[in-house]
Amino acid sequence: MPVDPDTPRGRRVLGKDRMEGFSDGVFGFAITLLVLDIALRPPGTPLQQVVHAWPAYVAYVVSFLTIGGAWLQHTALTDQLAQTDPLFLRLNLLVLLVVVFLPFPTQLVADALRNASGERV
């Protein structure tokens, strides 16, 4: 098979569109996971339940803003790229790993604020 002289040798270069689409989906999924911790828990009137759930609302807002800020920075970075390579894709996956993990500590913080009998640091 003849070798095309215009074909670059070395590292494989990839378009950035698929990475951006996947990354946006992961950011959206992570933000969606945050809302799962918000729930009204009896007893009490609906208003009392909403007031009692304030730790979940605070944790949601803080984590939403954190993930949103990471998404804004990610978007600003990828807007400057013309293409990606396998190393950049792997680094991007590490960033997404951290982003998807954020709902877990969010739930832990909300539970700790809600549970007055636990130890506080």
Rank of each mutant, 00 (worst) to 15 (best):
G15D: 15
R12C: 06
P46S: 06
G10C: 12
G69M: 00
P103T: 13
L93N: 02
I67Y: 00
A112V: 08
D17R: 13
Y60N: 00
P86C: 00
D4Q: 03
L33E: 06
L81M: 10
G118N: 15
T32W: 07
A82N: 08
I67K: 00
D17F: 04
Q83W: 04
Q107R: 14
L97Y: 06
L91D: 06
G21A: 13
R11D: 06
L40N: 08
D37Y: 04
D37G: 05
L36I: 10
D6Q: 10
I67L: 03
A30F: 01
P86V: 00
F27K: 00
L102S: 07
Q80F: 08
D79V: 03
A70P: 06
G28K: 04
G68M: 05
D85N: 13
R11K: 14
V51I: 15
L33Q: 10
P42N: 11
G21T: 14
L113V: 10
A39Y: 03
G25D: 05
L93R: 08
L33G: 11
H52S: 15
P105Q: 08
G68E: 07
V109S: 02
V98A: 15
G44H: 10
R114D: 14
L89F: 09
T32Y: 07
H74V: 03
R114M: 14
V51F: 09
P55L: 11
Y60L: 13
E20W: 09
L34N: 02
W71F: 13
G44W: 06
E20I: 13
S23Q: 10
A53T: 01
L96T: 03
V26F: 01
A39K: 11
L97M: 12
D4R: 02
R9E: 15
V26H: 00
K16F: 09
D6N: 15
N115L: 10
A30K: 02
G68Q: 04
P55F: 12
F64I: 04
V121Y: 13
P8R: 09
F104N: 09
V3Y: 14
A112M: 04
G10K: 04
R41A: 08
F64D: 03
Y57F: 15
L87V: 08
F101N: 11
V95K: 04
L93Q: 12
G21F: 09
S63T: 14
D6M: 13
L97R: 04
I67E: 01
L94D: 04
H74T: 07
T75N: 11
L14T: 12
A76K: 11
A110R: 07
E119F: 14
P55H: 06
T45F: 07
V95A: 03
W54M: 05
P5T: 09
F27I: 05
Y57T: 08
F64Y: 14
N92Y: 02
F27M: 01
L36P: 06
V26C: 04
T66F: 12
L81T: 01
I38N: 07
P43E: 14
G10S: 07
D4H: 10
D85T: 07
Q83R: 06
L77Y: 12
P46L: 14
H52W: 10
R41C: 03
T45Q: 02
A59H: 09
T75A: 13
D85L: 00
L34S: 00
S23A: 15
G118A: 12
N92W: 02
A110E: 13
P105H: 10
V3C: 11
V62T: 08
G69D: 03
L113R: 02
A59S: 15
L89K: 05
L33Y: 03
G28Q: 02
V13W: 06
L96Y: 02
L93F: 05
